[in-house]
Amino acid sequence: MSTTTTTRVEPEGQVAEDAPRTLKAAIGPTDRVFRGISRGGGFAVLAVMSLIGVFLTFRALQALREAGWSFVTTEAWEPDGGEFGIAAVLVGTILIALVAIAIAVPLAVGTALYISEYAPARIKRTLISMVDLMAAVPSVVYGLWGAFFLQWNILGLSRWISTWFGWIPFLSVEGTDPRDPLATETVYTASTLIAGIVVAMMVTPITCSVMREVFSQAPAGEREGAYALGATKWGMIRSVVLPYGKGGMIGGTMLGLGRALGETIGVYLVISPVFVIQPRILESGTSSVSSLIALRYGESSQFELSALMAAGLALFLMTLVVNFAASSIIARSRSGAVSDA
C-alpha cells in the first residue's frame, strides 16, 4: 500500500473548486429516540427547577404587594395583623452565618493545609474520606450537640468575653451585671454565638474539602522551585500553595456561607426566636429566615404562608447570589478549571 503514490486524476483544464462541504451526520431512528428522551429529561429538570422559582415568586407576590418596601425594613412578624417584615430575621441569619464563617474558615484552612501538606501519605486518604463523611453527617446531629452540650458548657466563655470585651458593642450583653454573683446565666444561652458555632461545625467539612482539593493541585514544579531557592516548608506554602489556592479558598468560604445561610434544624434547635434586630451576639435571642419558616408554617393562614414564601424567596436569592459568586470565583481562579466545586 505504501508503494502507491497518490496521484490526483484531474481532467485537463478543469480545476476542481474546493467548495466547503456541509457536514451532516445521518442520525438513525434509535439515536433520534435517545436524543428525544434525554432532551425530555433535561427539559423536565429545567421545568421542575424553574417551577420552584416561579411558584415561590408568584405566591410571595401577594404578601409583597401588601407590604411593599416595608417588607425589608419591618422587624415584627405578624402577617395577619398586617405588620411583618424580614429585617430582624435577615439580620439574624446573616449574623449567624458570619459567626459561623469566622470560626469555620481558620479551622478549614488549617485542616486543609494539614491534609495536603503535612499529613503522612499513609493516612491522607483516610483523612480525606473522614472530612467527606463529616460533610454527610445529618444536621440534626450537630443540632443535638449544640442544644444539649454546647449550650450549657459555653456559658463561662460567654460571660468572660462579655465581662472583659463588653465595651465592643456587639459583644456586650444587656440584662445582667458581671459583678453580681447571683445573676442568672440564662441570658447567655440560645445566642447567636452558639448557633454560629453549631453551623460552623456543619460548614467546616465542605469548606475544608474544597480548599484541600485546590491546595493539592498546586504545581509540583513551583513547589520544588521554592524549595530549591531555599524556602522552608512554611515559606513554600506561603509563596506557592496559598497564592495558588486563593480562588479556591474564597470560593470554598462562600460555598460554606451559602450553606450557613440556609441551615434550618441546627439553628432551630438552639435559638430562642425574637423578632427584633438583635446585634449582640452573646445575648440570648436571635432568629433566622429558615427557622422562622420551620416555626410558623404549620399554624399559618394563606396570607401568612404567602409572607413566609416571600421570606423564603429572599433567603433563596441571597444563597443564589453567594453560590454564583463562589462558583465564578472558583472557575476564574488559576486552580479552578479542574475543580468541581
Binding site: V45, L46, L56, G312, L315, F316, T319, N323
Partner: peptide, 22 residues
C-alpha cells in the same frame, strides 16, 4: 439546564419543603 441545576444546589432544604407544602 446546567446553569439552572447548579443554581438549585444552593436551594436551602427548607424551601424545597415549603415548595412541596405550598
Amino acid at each position: 439546564v446546567r446553569t439552572v441545576s447548579e443554581a438549585m444546589t444552593a436551594l436551602p432544604s427548607i424551601i424545597a419543603g415549603l415548595f412541596i407544602y405550598a
